[in-house]
Design a binder for these strands. Structure first.
Lengths: 125, 125
DNA sequence: GAATTCACCTACCTTGAGGTAAGTATGCCC
DNA sequence: GGGCATACTTACCTCAAGGTAGGTGAATTC
């Protein structure tokens, strides 16, 4: 099975994906928008502990990268409606896989108090 | 469909997963180990541009987190054989999803030279 | 027309992830 | 026992992600 061990170079697709999607908020933002086109204020409420600077910045990045679209005012309304592009929708399997792993990890940690120290390093209030 | 919009709190499983797996190297290391149990030197060769400090540190982190095991010398050999735990194997769907997204992104960018500027922000030699 | 809300933007600061370069401990070979 | 390889460790530094706090301009409300 080491037959398929591959050299991890900068052009590896996993690295491409990591560079586009890594960060504390990007995948969470995409996940929120996936639940329906969302406005700026809705996103801020959904992710209570993101700062406004970062929210605006990440939205801009995702639009520039072609993962989100921003619709300006459908005439008369306040502007800003974000939606996933086709490419953006392709991030959903990633988020789902992460969610499944997160659940598996929590389940495992619950069963193994012996590893609580390691888990504590990532514990939150 | 906004029926299922959920509050992203620190306890969300996606956040748990992101905290454990985010970073430049973790998923790549796990992917490499998944191609067969690996030794320190093999991993260093597979990921040519990781620094030794980070390689050692990330390996330790992954062992502490319960995603990798390190077998000490099977008697007489040089020590250090890393392998995935059951939990560690559960990260593979994440990596696979990232790989699929990376390929889709590259394909899309190749078709749309108009967005090359945004892509350039993440381009590498 | 004053006040408020919404969707941002700007300047400044802190923290930590990751890099560089060197050193250490252990075993193996001859 | 001197040299070499493997598997790390340590001290130091840099940079960028992310946070804080306070703006701004346009629309909407009263």
């Amino acid at each position: 099975m080491p037959a398929s061990r591959l050299l991890i170079t900068p052009r590896c697709p996993v690295r491409t994906a990591l560079e586009l999607l890594s960060g504390k908020w990007r995948l969470l933002l995409l996940q929120q928008v996936a639940t329906g086109a969302a406005r700026y204020g809705e996103l801020r409420q959904s992710l209570p502990d993101i700062s406004e600077k970062v929210l605006a910045h990440e939205l801009k990045f995702l639009v520039d990268a072609g993962l989100l679209t921003r619709q300006d005012a459908p005439e008369g309304l306040v502007r800003s409606l974000y939606a996933l592009t086709a490419l953006g929708e392709q991030t959903q399997p990633v988020t789902q896989a992460l969610a499944r792993f997160g659940l598996a990890y929590n389940a495992e940690v619950a069963l193994e108090p012996s590893r609580e120290r390691a888990a504590d390093a990532n514990a939150r209030p």
